[in-house]
Design a protein around this nucleic acid. Structure first.
Lengths: 234, 234
DNA sequence: CCGTGTGAAGATGTTCACAGCC
DNA sequence: GGCTGTGAACATCTTCACACGG
């Protein structure tokens, strides 16, 4: 049973699973690059850094793409996941804010190779206009609307200072962008139907600092080594 | 009662809460900057982009720092959260891999202002050695051990290509680093007791692409607008 | 026999709704 | 009266363990 078609509207993939699919995709690509044609859930789970039960459960939401007693065909599964995520063809994206981070993002080759194409770089500072970064000219922020319409852009990246982020987001939303990746350290408010994901460099460090502090306190105080009840996936 | 002291070893803060504390900290700083001395859970929740029940629950894991009928003292709560995270004084960090992203990270002022101090920039490429980035000289990767010992560094940032990331991580762990922030698109394996957090730019975009594709499919197929059962926190 | 796919159990996280205190 | 702090209900996510099919 459960031969769910990819167009079955009832099929819902849990958010936690969606967040791992790109990891599986990358792991499959790595396996394929080493010439491996078939893998078990155990193999792929190890490559992806998760345990095999979770991997199988995740894949089960997509359909039954494995063969019992055998495993998964690497290329076939890779295609199925790519199709599910929607990266079998390129998504055009615009990057707004060409400071240090914007430069790094524009030059990041991982976007290109993973289903995204940077169609424009925009900055409010007119002195940057015309500069070529990673083969793309920096253009004035005003041109956002024309670019978005011309290239049918649905995804925007914000790499501006925090003070500008909400204004940029408002403008993006007004023009029709419905997904935003925000690198600015600010909370964006957007209407329903617009997705925002946030990448915050210093928040990640602060989370590490919290655990680091706990390790230090634990060492000097009570329990020296907490015996973590761990499954044991390497 | 539950007058938990900050040194009470039994007190455990859920991981999901830990991940939000830095957001609250930032929101409190923003409120303080506009001269606000006191705020309700509703105010702070709005500034942080969460709902107030979640905020209160999160804060309750730290202790009882609010006043019923009144709210929270902004500066006092800010200090308590900073202390809990461990950013009341600076953590020295090293950044390995001074490509585009490493440059951007080295120049990112948010680290400095949020409890971190970049004490060294390292790169395996000898031609980069001596270059000054954000006031810090780039040094050969070999000097990692000396630097880590000299500055008592516990947190390392990896901004190398994926192919080098595991080697760098192994070296960091061998030298005594116990927390790693990994920007390379690769799965790191580290021994128990070492924390790794991953920031992956293209994974975030792929997650957005998935939802974007769903919106597009939903529009052309069945339900035009899914009536999301939402609490309604703006 | 082996490894996938999956119900069921358990753990973690979120929201509700109100008691308790200012 | 108003707002915090929190048990209890609900939702989501993870892990277990085994039936099932190649």
């Amino acid at each position: 049973m459960t031969a769910r078609s990819s167009t079955d509207p009832a099929r819902v993939i849990p958010e936690a699973t969606v967040a791992r699919l790109p990891v599986y995709l990358r792991a499959l690509t790595a396996l394929a690059d080493t010439g491996i044609r078939t893998c078990s859930s155990e193999d792929l789970a190890t490559a992806a850094g998760v345990n095999s039960a979770k991997l199988r459960k995740d894949l089960s939401y997509l359909g039954s793409y494995g063969t019992r007693g055998v495993g998964y065909d690497v290329d076939y599964l890779r295609y199925q996941i790519a199709r599910e995520i929607g990266v079998t063809q390129d998504w055009p994206v615009v990057i707004v804010g060409i400071g240090n981070l914007g430069h790094a993002l524009a030059n990041y080759s991982g976007f290109r190779s993973r289903g995204f194409r940077v169609v424009a770089l925009l900055d409010a500072d007119p002195s940057l206009s015309g500069e070529i970064v990673a083969g793309v000219a920096v253009r004035p922020f005003d041109e956002l609307e024309a670019i978005v319409h011309d290239h049918d852009v649905a995804i925007g990246v914000i790499a501006t200072p925090a003070s500008a982020a909400q204004d940029v987001a408002d403008r993006m939303v007004a023009i029709g962008i419905t997904s935003i990746l925000n690198f600015a350290p600010s909370v964006l408010s957007v209407p329903e139907g617009v997705d925002v994901r946030k990448v915050d460099l210093s928040i990640e460090l602060q989370i590490l600092a919290y655990h680091e502090q706990r390790k230090a306190n634990g060492a000097e105080a009570a329990a020296p080594v907490a015996p973590v009840a761990d499954g044991g996936a390497a």
